[in-house]
Nucleic acid binder design. Structure first.
Lengths: 224, 224
DNA sequence: GATAGTTTCATACAACTGTTTGAATTGCAA
DNA sequence: TTGCAATTCAAACAGTTGTATGAAACTATC
């Protein structure tokens, strides 16, 4: 009963500290000091440090996945069980980008924690991410319905690139700001989402299997 | 003189171990055991563990950057000081992808080390990566020459997405193979490079500032 | 209000970490 | 060979880490 207070104090303190200083140099002693609880409380309530981190990540991760699937479902219902490709990709990258970017989310502990998790890749989190495959397959299935003629490999590459752009933007937002000297506006989340979706759609609809024959305007270059 | 043997034995052993098991759980004691040298040798020859890691990464990193610039220069000379955009992007992502992917490079210690470095992001490596901005600016400059009318922000986004796709492919190649059940061929490096370049060029030439007005075939979706 | 179960606490544990030390050894020049 | 520097070595250092323990405090039920 009253143990819930301790439990959630640990969770909150851990998320805050990990978000601010990374998984690398935050110890259990830092966490319990921040949470004003005893050191042994972590192992009592969570079993181990890794399980604490896992619970932290699973919570946020499930929320994002739920949001994604809701958006996908909404788009499919709107189109009568057949969502257009840009809506599918929007459902895929929108929640992640909205959750991690933007001026309102800037101070959000959850956002900063998820950014850390996408940068540092500590074992317990990696284990969870590896189970994300089933979730992504639902988007592949939707994409297949939206582009029936398309080669399967192209769909996988398209989804892969969409995730690449959204994750890399989250992960390297500081570097991009610095490189572009502020000319890339990392606060306009909607514009970023549109841009990522737009490029992803082009990747999927641009040329037929660009890797094999490259019939588009861009010709493959010779090696070396 | 003969100390060079110790020095390079440490470098080789460290690179091998880091490549295989990651920075997280390889200790100096593991390294000196693998290299058959004394524990103190690391601090004697490199000053600290972090400086050892830094030297390891700098060496490989400089080689890649040199290769990139050579390819860029070659492309510019070929075009009379004005390389086409796809050649520029090819010079940017080619060396990295070629260095980390492909069946011949599969067993390469250097490749596996660089993949680790791109996944784990340990402090000494992060510090070095932050100095990579100047290097990237040279590619922005070349891109500006190739696409004079283009808005600067679009160029930065294009370069950013090109790096996103190439790095994410390297970092998540296992996941992509698993997700696609082998339908994405991670061994055909040339095809991957062509695909990344092709999509990047589309991102740069596709629609005029797709984020602002989205005049292309893809229309921005409403929020939420 | 005694009892049983849960939660907290101070403390100890055992292992591991990167780094330092100072003596021993080696290599090379004079 | 002597002398001096560079290198190697075993050992210890000083600190940190996550986890375990067993007693104490609390809570709720009968």
């Amino acid at each position: 009963m009253s143990s819930d207070r301790t439990r959630s104090a640990i969770l909150a303190a851990a998320e805050r500290l990990y978000a601010d200083r990374g998984f690398g140099d935050v110890t259990l002693r830092d966490i319990v000091a921040e949470a004003n609880v005893n050191l042994a409380a972590v192992n009592y309530h969570f079993g181990s440090k890794d399980e604490l981190i896992a619970e932290l990540f699973v919570t946020r991760s499930l929320a994002t996945n739920r949001e994604r699937l809701n958006e996908l479902k909404a788009a499919e219902e709107k189109g009568g069980g057949h969502a257009p490709i840009d809506a599918i990709l929007h459902a895929l990258v929108g929640p992640t980008l909205r959750g991690c970017l933007g001026p309102d989310r800037e101070g959000s502990t959850a956002a900063r924690f998820m950014i850390r998790a996408s940068i540092e890749s500590v074992p317990p989190i990696r284990r969870i991410k590896n189970r994300e495959v089933d979730h992504l397959r639902k988007f592949i299935a939707a994409m297949r319905r939206a582009m029936p003629g398309r080669d399967d490999a192209d769909l996988y590459w398209g989804l892969h690139f969409a995730l690449a752009m959204s994750h890399h933007t989250i992960r390297e937002k500081e570097r991009l700001t610095k490189l572009s000297e502020g000319r890339c506006d990392l606060n306009d989340v909607q514009a970023i989402i549109d841009r990522v979706v737009s490029v992803s759609v082009m990747a999927l609809t641009g040329g037929e299997t660009p890797a094999k024959k490259a019939p588009g305007k861009v010709v493959a270059r010779e090696a070396r």
